[in-house]
Design a protein around this nucleic acid. Structure first.
Lengths: 226, 226
DNA sequence: TTAGTTGATGGTACCGCGTACCATTCCTGC
DNA sequence: GCAGGAATGGTACGCGGTACCATCAACTAA
């Protein structure tokens, strides 16, 4: 009888949940409360969301799939671009959510169970990035750690900018995430990318470090083997 | 009447839990089962462990406190040493657990709830490291991201070696974690360490990257401002 | 010895999440 | 109109986790 489209039940449940969580807090809100306010039965809630906290992270699965899809369409030479764009994609999803993302942030900041849940979700992203980067870098023994470090850094960079936006500390998060990703990429200079052409770099700079200290870092920066 | 020392109740509960989880799996084991096998009441279980999955991570809180303690006893000049030793401390705790750590790994690999729980615990370590490194680097705006990247890398390096040991892929994890930490430290060259004396570095190397590409990386490597 | 205190334990009852199952309703194609 | 499928609501149950109370042992003070 309801003239609303089918998916509106899910929407009403999400709205009711966020309202109640804001009014009484997460623990003091029962699933029955949410279902009642949404005007549906308890069973319907669990048909739309796997668990009570699932209503806080509604399209997490879609986001995971979106990342997979973006990473899948990349060649070796465009791997870094794919990673960067996947990060932008995630951040963009949060920004599009707007106020709801900020409400989730308020909830995950106060409720330990929700914070753990969000951290677990982030770990899924990190796993995707790790596997992708590891495949990209090749099966060498040493690259496994390198891939893990890079994936962790990529996710950390994203989270850093995301939290800044959630707290209202920035008005241009997309620009910031580009900068943060540039820092990450600079940390991991020139992975086994196919050599294009060899050039010679001569750098003269004043520094407080001794050449002996910084030479290893620069060797890694240019991907040269001693 | 039991002539066993007081703490043995807790031990018996842990033993019973790991036994039953190994026999029937985690979900198919109830808290009553664990309490029964340990010969105590259900109430006693929850007096010793906050929740069912807490029995899997018994001394997580002590480990957190141990990290805090190790990081607290450090000056600016010994910060990196403190971080490295804290990482060694964590890894050592796992190794000392021996077979129990491997059983936990088997469980967390199969049961999603336990994996999430473990990830949340690791996030606590990462938070400690992030705050410590951020304090160490100073309050500058730019260092916030740098601290976050480094903390994520430190934890990733630890986890990488830990998982290798858990899988039996290495026999000398302490040496490996030193190497992994060295890689991490090399990624973040000489943070705002107190300037000693200025010298001039001239580096000439062949590389497949254009000078334009690698100049930013080298600028950061030597801590120079353009 | 007796009385009171403290701590650990066991038991019972309860709440809330999540699942399984069943009955009802609505909607669609024949 | 009728049959079949999808969505819904209701009921019952298992289990984790909490609150509360009663019991018992050990220690202490009179």
């Amino acid at each position: 009888m309801t003239a609303v489209p089918k998916s509106s039940v899910r929407e009403r449940l999400m709205d009711a949940a966020f309202e109640l969580f804001g009014e009484r807090g997460y623990e003091l809100t029962t699933v029955d409360d949410i279902a009642d306010r949404a005007g549906v039965g308890r069973t319907t809630f669990f048909r739309n969301f796997r668990s009570k906290d699932d209503v806080i992270f509604p399209d997490h699965d879609h986001l995971i799939e979106a990342i997979k899809g973006r990473l899948a369409t990349s060649t070796n030479s465009t791997a870094i671009v794919a990673v960067s764009e996947a990060v932008r994609l995630v951040l963009l999803r949060y920004i599009e959510e707007g106020e709801r993302a900020r409400m989730r942030y308020a909830l995950t900041s106060r409720v330990a169970a929700l914070r753990d849940r969000e951290i677990a979700g982030v770990a899924q992203y990190q796993r995707l990035f790790r596997e992708f980067i590891a495949n990209w870098m090749g099966p060498s023994q040493d690259t496994a750690l390198r891939a893990e470090l890079m994936a962790a850094s990529v996710v950390a960079a994203h989270n850093h900018v995301l939290r800044r936006w959630l707290r209202g500390d920035t008005v241009d998060p997309m620009a910031e995430v580009d900068g943060a990703m540039a820092q990450v990429i600079a940390l991991f200079p020139s992975v086994p990318a196919e050599p294009t052409e060899t050039s010679t770099a001569i750098i003269v700079l004043h520094t407080s470090q001794s050449p002996h200290e910084l030479l290893p870092a620069i060797r890694r920066a240019i991907g040269s083997t001693p």
